[in-house]
Design a protein around this nucleic acid. Sequence first.
DNA 1: TCCTCATTTCAATGATTATTGAATTATAGG
DNA 2: CCTATAATTCAATAATCATTGAAATGAGGA
Lengths: 119, 119
Amino acid sequence: MEERQARTAFAALSQETRLRIVRLLVQAGPEGMAAGAIAEAVDVSPSNVSFHLKDLEHAGMIVPRREARSIIYSADFAGLRDLIAFLMKDCCAGHPEICAPALADAPCGPSAKKKRAHA
Amino acid sequence: MEERQARTAFAALSQETRLRIVRLLVQAGPEGMAAGAIAEAVDVSPSNVSFHLKDLEHAGMIVPRREARSIIYSADFAGLRDLIAFLMKDCCAGHPEICAPALADAPCGPSAKKKRAHA
DNA sequence: TCCTCATTTCAATGATTATTGAATTATAGG
DNA sequence: CCTATAATTCAATAATCATTGAAATGAGGA
């Protein structure tokens, strides 16, 4: 991943509505959600959600597919992984054992949030 | 981590100079770098690097410590982990096995970028 | 074909944010 | 105590971005 694309992705995630959309779709999984349902879920106007969906798509965070009259969006898990990898690349000058303990149980999972209880 | 703080963090990472600073410090490891050295490395004015360092500190991405006349900044690895965890929380509605393969070897490491060669 | 629904595009407005250079604070050494 | 160095603060300017409502597109069903 290039720096430019990573910045676009982080900028996309820095906006309230867009971050909510991405988390909504991360939690929804590969099944995804229709644009209209997303608009309702995050409570913004159709035109506004469309604006943000385009931005997220351009940033490589979500992918669209057509299904009947609706357009279904789902999280781009490969894009998310690439973004995280870019941020952490060459961590600790090639000695990941230094920061690995701090990152170990970060990604994914129901309660990834407070996993380091016993550590 | 709260949504508000996550947005602040992503906004911090979305700016060219700040993203370079964070990656510089991620690669530098716990040792960190002095503000002046960072300014030189990313080629911006002292006042401007100070502005961005404050923003990154406020976003929980870096931490400062004083050492003689200099202020040494290093990456906040716990903060980075929390941010990633927030983004991926409750992935696939509690079924991380769905997206885990896509995220498996993302974090950390010398070539985290293209690690899934053999899978 | 005609009509309807879902989504997108467009132009205008208001609000944030980065950058610059000068002035200021704070630390350490002579 | 005085000087030099390191970093930060401040005010002003320029640039970027989100939001709104109306109009347009495009796919499907009657």
